[in-house]
């Protein structure tokens, strides 16, 4: 069954790159939804049937950690896998994301292989 994906990043370039990697991965990709910050991402989750989320951390309006916390606090989305894709590589941020329920953590710059490995772990 195809999996719909939500990509959350304030950079349109990163959203495009991630979508391109997903389209070339050996993975049953459905629709790809995009959001430029955490607030927009919560709205997209409410409107769409998403099965996997990729999220940046540093974003305007609502950052990725706040988005993750709010998403995981909602029963409808609490079990959704979330992979953080971010420049933030410090131990403190990684631990925060894992404690909030992130499934995986990828540091920018990333390779297509790193994304595919994380996908394989989830699927």
């Amino acid at each position: 069954m195809a999996l719909n994906v939500l990509i959350v990043d304030d950079s349109a370039a990163i959203r495009k790159i991630l979508e391109r990697v997903l389209r070339h991965a050996d993975f049953p990709l459905g629709d790809v939804h995009e959001a430029g910050d955490g607030k927009e991402a919560l709205a997209k989750l409410a409107q769409s049937d998403v099965g996997l989320v990729f999220s940046d951390i540093n974003m305007p309006n609502m950052d990725g950690l706040e988005f993750l916390a709010q998403m995981k606090a909602n029963e409808s989305w609490s079990k959704l896998p979330v992979i953080m894709v971010t420049t933030e590589g410090g131990q403190e941020k990684v631990m925060q994301a894992i404690q909030l329920g992130a499934t995986g953590y990828i540091r920018k710059p990333f390779t297509a292989e790193q994304i595919k490995e994380k996908l394989a772990g989830i699927i």
Partner: peptide, 26 residues
């Protein structure tokens, strides 16, 4: 902008091991 964010962000992450937590602006 994203390229700058990645370069400065990676420098920031490495600096944190000696300087403590740092915040990266947009």
């Amino acid at each position: 902008g994203e390229l700058g964010n990645m370069i400065i962000g990676n420098v920031k992450t490495e600096l944190e091991s000696t300087e403590g937590p740092l915040a990266l602006g947009l």
